[in-house]
Simulated assay, not measured.
Amino acid sequence: MRHKQQGFSMIEMMTVLVIIGILSAIAVPLMHGYQVRAKNTQSVSDVYHLYLFENQFYDEHHEYVPIAPADKQASGLLSKNVTLADGSVVLFEIRNLTADVQVAVNTDNTHQTLVIGGLAAGSDTIIAFDPDAQDGYHAITLSGSFASSSIPNSTSGNDLSSYPVFHQ
């Protein structure tokens, strides 16, 4: 009489474990890459929104607003009283920025040009935008902690020409 085999043999179990290990070794780095790209996309979105708000403010008041990372609250609200060149005080406020993205805006001394940068939590790439540069967003590798000094000072020229163009 033949004895019926029940369960899996050790060879079968080891084969399944090897296959799972190979799939994990492929999937984990891919997943990390997708997460980094998603975070950088959040930075692009916030830099773009900040640029739109800065342009709207400039259209009304003829000045851009310098922004330090500390100006943005953890909720994503950026609210700042700005003293204009004529001495008047105006509220600059954006409510729809991503909570996990730090932003900064550098302006020149007369607040007529700007460079905007954004850094998502968990990323080491600052996404920067200069309207004077005709080639879009640039990638700046973060060294240290994010601050206004992490992005170039603003001039009337392309301030991001020494940084690579950001490709998603």
Rank of each mutant, 00 (worst) to 15 (best):
R2T: 12
K4W: 02
Q6M: 06
G7K: 03
I11Y: 06
M14N: 04
V16W: 09
V16M: 10
L17E: 05
I20E: 00
I20V: 15
G21Q: 00
G21Y: 06
I22C: 00
I22M: 11
I22Q: 01
L23W: 03
S24H: 01
S24M: 12
A25M: 08
A25H: 03
I26G: 02
V28G: 00
M31C: 09
M31N: 08
M31Q: 08
H32Y: 11
Y34F: 10
Q35N: 03
Q35G: 00
V36L: 14
R37P: 10
K39M: 07
K39I: 07
N40P: 04
T41C: 03
T41R: 03
Q42N: 12
S43T: 05
S45E: 08
D46A: 06
D46E: 00
V47I: 12
V47S: 01
V47D: 10
V47A: 15
F53W: 12
E54Q: 15
E54Y: 04
N55H: 12
N55W: 04
Q56M: 04
Q56N: 08
F57V: 03
Y58H: 12
Y58I: 10
H61C: 02
H62Q: 14
E63I: 00
Y64P: 08
Y64L: 06
V65T: 14
I67L: 04
A68N: 15
A68Y: 10
D71H: 05
D71Y: 06
A74H: 06
A74C: 10
A74E: 14
S75Y: 02
G76D: 08
G76W: 03
L77C: 07
L78Y: 02
S79T: 08
S79H: 12
S79G: 13
N81L: 14
A85L: 10
D86K: 10
G87Q: 01
V89R: 11
V90K: 15
F92Y: 11
F92I: 04
E93W: 02
N96C: 03
N96D: 15
T98D: 15
T98A: 11
D100P: 07
V101T: 06
V101H: 02
V101P: 04
Q102D: 14
Q102S: 15
Q102K: 13
V103R: 09
T107E: 11
T107D: 03
D108K: 10
N109R: 14
H111T: 03
H111N: 14
Q112Y: 07
L114K: 13
L114R: 14
L114M: 15
L114D: 05
V115E: 00
V115N: 01
I116P: 07
G117N: 01
A121V: 06
S123P: 09
D124T: 14
T125P: 12
I126P: 08
I127R: 08
F129W: 10
D130Q: 10
D132R: 15
D132C: 07
D135L: 05
Y137V: 02
H138C: 05
A139G: 07
A139H: 05
I140E: 11
I140V: 01
L142M: 05
L142D: 07
S143F: 06
S145R: 14
F146N: 09
S148N: 13
S148G: 15
S149Q: 11
S150G: 01
P152G: 06
P152S: 02
N153D: 09
N153M: 05
G157C: 07
G157M: 02
N158K: 06
N158D: 15
N158Q: 11
D159I: 08
D159P: 05
L160T: 05
L160Y: 06
S161V: 12
S162Q: 14
P164M: 06
V165G: 09
V165C: 04
H167V: 15
